[in-house]
């Protein structure tokens, strides 16, 4: 594929080559290549069922691969045991999903602090960092409410705060605005990409919404289990 070349000399933050993933006999990924540099926001688009989410899960080491490799920061992620991959997800990655990601019985601030506490930070410190991030995402007023008691837009910003609080180098966002109206969605994207740029975190942004994808630096399209880098194509022809 044309877009899978890494920048010359320096290694990309995360490089996936020839990924294969089957669910039963159907191939969700069939030789997909993907690369992302530090601080880069890459939109992953494609029709429903094209394998966008599967690609994200494979890149994050959540799903086991049926073929291919994922290299992250010098480690071959796909060769690490599950415990190591989990550790990496705690320390280096952040996640934002479309819905159902907050633990309903924990308060919002506890949900945000979750990432830090998983990494072993003491409760008090974790919650004070969490509060700072919530302020930054303009949801510190719902600090002590449960997710069920706040609006969808606030909930999603809480989730974004949680993804950012541990200082990840790479954020995986799967349809982060899928459950939001366009105004809330745009605000959430602004805050997410703004914060990511400030902290230098890279973002893999899976979305079917071009207005969301417009917050990225670069776009790839997943089609038939493969990744097409359309940005690179136009760059090559013009």
């Amino acid at each position: 594929m044309s877009g899978a070349n890494t920048a010359e000399g320096t290694e990309a933050l995360l490089t996936a080559t020839r990924l294969r993933k089957y669910f039963g006999s159907t191939a969700a990924l069939n030789g997909a290549d993907f690369t992302i540099d530090s601080g880069e926001v890459v939109a992953v688009m494609g029709p429903s069922g094209s394998g966008k989410s599967t690609l994200l899960h494979c890149l994050a080491g959540i799903l086991d691969l049926d073929g291919g490799t994922v290299r992250y920061d010098g480690h071959e992620l796909s060769a690490l045991p599950d415990t190591e991959r989990s550790r990496l997800r705690r320390s280096d990655f952040g996640f934002v999903f479309q819905f159902g990601q907050l633990v309903p019985e924990l308060t919002c601030v506890e949900n945000v602090a979750l990432s830090l506490r998983l990494a072993g930070v003491a409760r008090r410190r974790a919650e004070s960092s969490a509060t700072e991030w919530m302020a930054r995402l303009e949801v510190d007023d719902v600090r002590d409410k449960r997710p069920g008691q706040v609006s969808g837009g606030q909930r999603q910003r809480v989730a974004i705060a949680r993804a950012l609080v541990a200082g990840p180098r790479l954020i995986f966002a799967d349809e982060p605005t899928g459950a939001l109206d366009s105004l809330n969605g745009e605000r959430a994207m602004e805050l997410l990409t703004g914060a990511a740029r400030d902290t230098g975190a890279a973002v893999v942004l899976v979305t079917h919404d071009v207005r969301v994808a417009a917050y990225s630096d670069r776009e790839v399209v997943v089609r038939d289990g493969q990744v097409l880098d359309t940005t690179a194509r136009i760059a090559g022809t013009t």
Binding site: R211, A214, V221, T230, T231, R233
Partner: peptide, 23 residues
């Protein structure tokens, strides 16, 4: 299909620009 992809990418490039200007 390639034609459409190219056009799509170009549209998106402009949208990125507008989004940046907007923010």
């Amino acid at each position: 299909a390639g034609l459409l992809d190219v056009q799509r990418a170009e549209h998106l490039r402009l949208m990125r620009e507008l989004t940046r200007r907007k923010t």
